[in-house]
């Protein structure tokens, strides 16, 4: 448990460091502190990644990985952008669709016994194809009312949803289901031996990842006010990066979705820092890559130091 706490705190440390760097760079560049508008735009642009990262962290906690988040976000973005302007009821359909896609992954992984990375690689292709079928060319729209409720450009309604996600996770991890997720990630054979229904838990975890992708898609369309069948692609790698920066162990069983949320916000801040420090945008991914590796190395170094201290 102490190990879990330590890993999470790495994610928060990275976030705190990037936040300070952001403030310093912004202030020295523009000669004033960031305004509420800046915070609001950070919040609204981060929200989709935050949701995908939560879903991804759940899957990673069980020792799996979900590459199909890209496809699930894409297909949900396509459906949201084409339908919701006719009736808001479609939002429910989108969430159900995302959950169903995730459940399909879960079925194949848990009952078909195919490695998660391969299952979700195949379904990524299927879901992306589905997204292209729904929305062959970019476009679509979202009603203004939905926008005002989800990602209001004037007031931080996004904070409410972020808060709900955080509370949702805090409740979830204390439920029997939450404990089982950690149990499977730590040692699946032992978990099975003590009667954890591993297959059923995995099915739910992947379904939840799908639901998170659907939520991300809704917020994505709400922020960008249009859709694109390839909208989800960038989320595959950024969600994995968020989870890693947030201190969730790739072997499973250690870390927290909150760490992944911190990681997602930190990754978004890094892009802003690069922008305000006047670095050629072409070099952007160079620094993001370095940031990813350095954040993980910091975690490893901290773990080594902690072990040394305990042994001494």
């Amino acid at each position: 448990m102490r190990e879990a706490l330590r890993r999470v705190s790495i994610g928060y440390l990275v976030l705190a460091a990037t936040a300070v760097a952001y403030l310093v760079v912004y202030t020295s560049r523009l000669g004033r502190f960031p305004t509420s508008f800046d915070y609001l735009s950070i919040l609204n642009t981060t929200l989709p990644l935050v949701f995908v990262a939560i879903g991804q962290s759940l899957v990673v906690l069980t020792g799996g990985i979900d590459l199909s988040v890209g496809g699930m976000v894409s297909v949900c973005v396509a459906v949201t952008a084409t339908t919701v302007s006719s009736s808001v009821f479609w939002l429910v359909v989108v969430l159900a669709l995302g959950t169903a896609c995730g459940a399909l992954n879960g079925l194949i992984v848990a009952y078909g016994r195919i490695a998660p990375i391969l299952t979700t690689l195949a379904t990524l292709s299927i879901f992306t194809g589905l997204a292209l079928r729904v929305m062959p060319v970019p476009g679509g729209s979202i009603p203004q009312e939905v926008r005002l409720v989800l990602t209001n450009p004037a007031t931080p309604t996004g904070l409410i949803w972020l808060g709900l996600a955080v509370v949702g996770w805090l409740v979830l991890r204390r439920t029997r289901f939450g404990m089982r997720v950690y149990a499977i990630g730590s040692d699946e054979a032992s978990a099975r031996a003590v009667g954890v229904p591993a297959a059923a838990v995995k099915l739910k975890v992947y379904a939840l990842s799908g639901l998170c992708s659907a939520l991300a898609a809704v917020f994505y369309v709400s922020t960008t006010t249009s859709g694109d069948a390839n909208a989800g692609n960038p989320f595959i790698l950024t969600s994995i990066a968020s989870v890693v920066v947030g201190g969730v162990a790739f072997a499973g069983g250690r870390g927290s979705a909150l760490g992944a949320v911190a990681g997602a916000v930190a990754l978004t801040l890094v892009i802003d820092i690069l922008f305000f420090s006047g670095i050629d945008p072409l070099y952007q991914s160079l620094f993001q890559g370095l940031f990813l590796v350095v954040a993980v190395l910091l975690g490893t170094v901290a773990a080594l130091a902690a072990r040394r201290r305990r042994q001494a």
Partner: peptide, 20 residues
């Protein structure tokens, strides 16, 4: 460093270097 992280980061580094 886990292989996924190391090579993912390296992909970003190479992308940035190539583009830049």
């Amino acid at each position: 460093v886990p292989a996924v992280v190391m090579t993912l980061g390296m992909n970003g580094v190479m992308q940035g270097l190539t583009l830049g």
